[in-house]
Write a protein that binds this DNA or RNA. Structure first.
Length: 491
RNA sequence: GGCGCAUUCGUCUAGCGGCCUAGGACGCGUCCCUCUCAAGGACGAGAUCACGGGUUCGAAUCCCGUAUGCGCUACCA
């Protein structure tokens, strides 16, 4: 390998970073990092009608969240800048002019209304739609007349009408196209902005991009790019097209499928480690069984050749499982820090802020293996924080128990627990287990009654651990309240 | 319509001519553990490898055709 490896992620700033784009960026990044190459961020803002304010910042925020750092880009510069295409207009203009002078391109004055009508007719006649090359051989006089009329032209490439164009794709292999199926495409728009075809060729060459990694949707455009490379006398890069991420209907993933924005996943409580691992594994695999991989392992083992060829559906259930795995692997301090913002947002307003991080840290071990997403944590730990429990007292009565038996269980438990000198797990266990027997109950029945009394929930972390974190006073108070509520309940 | 690409359990995938009566994971079911919920463990159901022809002693793996799906077919990327 003589040429240094340089790859680029080139999104257009149209609003948000979706997981499909992220996957492309990850393949770029992993490939660059694996080979000690350079990862470049380039903003393809050549469509002024689709530009969205703040989109670039949003994009960068998403990449940073995943840990995809770039070596050259709009915010940090580099030797091949600027990295906004809108700031490179002269380059495209010069290239277009040169191609026109060479006779490889020409100005086209056709009105878009005419082109639309033409296409409609072609489709109606079941002809392949494409530009009819009306302006390809305009005489000097005709051109002058159009210019005089003030028509702003576009520049079209003069595509050869016969022959074939082929290229080798690292993932898809050899692909061949008939030139006769390709029309004279627009390179430079009438507003002076380039189309993707021109801009990507000019920039990839100027930025010395070695491998173009992008979605399969671009395969059909490669011949156009090759024509430009050839006409300009440039060496084309290596092509790596990867299959698309698709929705449940198997169509290319897009906004209408919902839940496609990377940062939404962050807000829904997924960890960046999860997203990184999971997205890398859609369409790429190391072998027949490795699934859980750290960023380091991914970098070390990544190769373009192991990217598959078929579009993949984003499997939410598996994502949830994987996120659970990562949550469980977190150190308690780490989990605490990550959970805090979600608790702040998700706990009832009645809970005093700021939250006590020390206390949060005490409850985290109890729910760590029960949360699949950070957003689920507030609901899981709510009873540790609120003052007034609010539940249906009928829930206190455990399976195969009467109201009276429940009442008695609560009252006796309260008395005995009051006498406990040390309120720890062991003490509770040695008190409560024999007590169940004494009351003629199964341990599960007693625990179930107490669980509801103390938490207001029927599914919680282990009872004794929960009680310890809650503290003796609060437990006794809640049992007392439960007794009162149960008494009010008519049997 | 034209051109291009793809096609292995519901989903993500392994497989690059014999190791495949097709392996793993998620999800699902049963059981174990167990104070509930999880987590964990065990077991199981689930794919005639889209279909039809070849090639070969032998094909999920190679070739051809068909079907289906997706992509492109803009002065969008």
């Amino acid at each position: 390998m003589t040429e240094p490896i340089r790859v680029r992620f080139a999104p257009s700033p149209t609003g948000f970073l979706h997981v499909g784009g992220v996957r492309t960026a990850m393949f770029d990044w992993l490939f660059a990092r694996h080979n000690g190459g350079t990862f470049i961020l380039r903003i393809e803002d050549t469509d002024i009608t689709r530009k969205v304010e703040g989109a670039v910042e949003y994009l960068m925020e998403g990449l940073k969240w995943l840990g995809l750092d770039w070596d050259e880009g709009p915010d940090m510069g580099g030797d091949y800048g600027p990295y906004y295409q809108s700031q490179r207009l002269d380059l495209y203009k010069q290239a277009a002019e040169r191609l026109v002078e060479q006779g490889d391109a020409y100005c086209c004055y056709c009105a878009s209304e005419r082109l639309d009508a033409m296409r409609k007719e072609q489709v109606a006649r079941k002809q392949p739609p494409g530009y009819d090359r009306l302006c390809r051989n305009l005489s000097l006089q005709e051109r002058a007349a159009k210019e005089a009329a003030g028509i702003k032209p576009v520049v079209r490439f003069k595509v050869p009408t016969e022959g074939q164009t082929s290229f080798h794709d690292i993932i898809y292999g050899d692909v061949v196209f008939e030139n006769s199926n390709i029309d004279d495409f627009v390179m430079l728009k009438s507003d002076g902005y380039p189309t993707y075809h021109l801009a990507n060729v000019v920039d990839d060459h100027a930025m010395k991009i070695s491998h173009v990694i992008r979605g399969e949707e671009w395969i059909s455009s490669v011949p156009r790019h090759l024509f430009i490379y050839k006409a300009l006398g440039y060496q084309p890069p290596l092509y790596v097209h990867h299959p698309l991420l698709v929705g449940p209907d198997r169509a290319k993933l897009s906004k209408r499928h919902g839940d496609v924005s990377l940062l939404e996943y962050r807000d829904q409580g997924y960890l960046p480690e999860t997203m990184f691992n999971f997205i890398a594994l859609i369409g790429w695999s190391l072998d027949d069984k490795t699934e859980l991989m750290t960023r380091r392992q991914l970098i070390d083992t990544f190769s373009l050749e192991r990217i598959g060829k078929t579009g993949a559906i984003f499997n939410r259930e598996k994502l949830d499982w994987m996120n659970g795995v990562y949550i469980r692997s977190l150190a308690i301090d780490d989990l605490t820090q990550r959970a805090l913002p979600f608790l702040d947002k998700g706990l009832p307003e009645s809970v005093k802020r700021p939250l006590n991080a020390g206390y949060v840290k005490q409850v985290m071990p109890l729910i760590q293996e029960r949360a699949k997403k950070l957003t689920e944590i507030p609901e899981l730990v709510k009873f540790f924080f609120i003052e007034e429990l609010n539940y249906d007292p009928a829930l206190l009565i455990a399976k195969n128990m009467t109201r009276e038996a429940t009442l008695k269980a609560l009252e006796v438990s309260l008395q005995r627990m009051k006498q406990l000198s040390s309120f720890d797990e062991g003490a509770l266990e040695t008190l409560l287990r024999p007590l169940a027997e004494e009351l003629g109950l199964k341990a599960g029945q007693l625990f179930s009654v107490l669980r509801t009394a103390v938490t207001g929930e029927t599914a919680t972390p282990p009872l004794f651990q929960t009680m310890v974190v809650l503290g003796k006073d609060r437990c006794l108070k809640r049992i007392d309240e439960a007794i009162a509520e149960l008494k009010k309940l008519s049997s």
